[in-house]
Design a binder for these strands. Structure first.
Lengths: 117, 117
DNA sequence: AATAGTAGTTACATAAATGATACTAACATG
DNA sequence: CATGTTAGTATCATTTATGTAACTACTATT
C-alpha cells in the first residue's frame, strides 16, 4: 500500500473514532457548550452561572470541574467579603473555536434543511 | 448598535447554543458517529453493522432510524432470498465533513495536550 | 412440517445523566 | 448571637440512555 495515501484500515478508523469520541466527551452533554458559550461573554461567578444557565449547583459544580480538568476553564478564588469564585475561559479554550464554529454552522444549515423537507 | 458588528446579545447567543445543540443531538451520543464512520467504508447490512459496531439490534435500529430521519443515512431493502437491508450514507451526510474533521483534529491535539500536562 | 437466515421488535433490567431540595462551611454584619 | 451571602456538597428522585434476551414476520431450504 502506498505510504502517502489516505489509509482506511480498521486501525486508523478506530483511532479516528477515538479522537472524535474524546472531543464529544469534553464538549458533549447538555451543559458544557452552554457554559463555554456564556463564559465567552466574560468571567462569571458561580451563582451567576447557575442563574444564567438555569443549572442546579450540583451539576454546575461537576461540569465546571470537568472543564477545568480539561484546561478549558480557570477557577479563581477572590478575596472578597463573602468569598466569591470567578470562572473564566482559558486561552487554550480558543482552540475549540473551529469545532464550535463548524457545529454552529452545520446546526443552522441542518435546521433549515429539515424545515424544507 | 452597529449593524455589521458581531452581536453578542442574549438572543443571538441563545440561537447559537440552539444550533450547536442541534448538531449534538444529531451526531452526539455513543453510536451515531461510530455508525457514520463505519458507513464511510461503504454500504452495510443490518447484521453487519450490528457485528462491526458491537451494538445490539434494538439500539442499532433506533440509531439508524434517527440517522435516516436526519437525512444522513439511506435505507435500502433488497430483493434477496431472505430479504436484506442495506444502509449507506447519503450525499447530504458529506456536509458533516467539516464538523467531523474539526472534532477529529481537536480530539487528537487535546489528547496530546492532556498527556503533556 | 422442521430448520434456518435476515431484520427487526418487545419486554424487561441496568446504568448514566440530570434535577430538586436541603444542607454545610466560612465569613461579615447588625 | 441571629441573619445573610457565596460556594459549594449530600441525599434522594426522576429521566434518559443503553444493554440483554427472547420473540415475530417473512421467506427459502430440506
Amino acid at each position: 500500500m502506498k505510504k502517502q495515501a489516505k489509509e482506511h484500515t480498521d486501525d486508523s478508523c478506530k483511532k479516528a473514532r477515538l479522537a472524535i469520541q474524546d472531543t464529544l466527551d469534553v464538549v458533549g452533554g447538555k451543559w458544557k457548550l452552554v457554559l463555554i458559550s456564556i463564559l465567552r461573554n466574560g468571567k462569571r461567578k458561580f451563582n451567576e452561572l447557575s442563574r444564567e444557565a438555569g443549572i442546579s449547583p450540583r451539576i454546575l459544580s461537576k461540569e465546571l470541574q470537568e472543564l477545568e480538568i480539561n484546561g478549558l476553564v480557570r477557577r479563581n478564588v477572590c478575596n472578597t467579603k463573602p468569598v466569591t469564585v470567578e470562572y473564566e475561559l482559558t486561552t487554550y479554550s480558543k482552540s475549540l473555536s473551529e469545532v464550535i464554529l463548524s457545529m454552529h454552522k452545520w446546526g443552522l444549515a441542518h435546521r433549515r434543511k429539515i424545515m424544507r423537507d
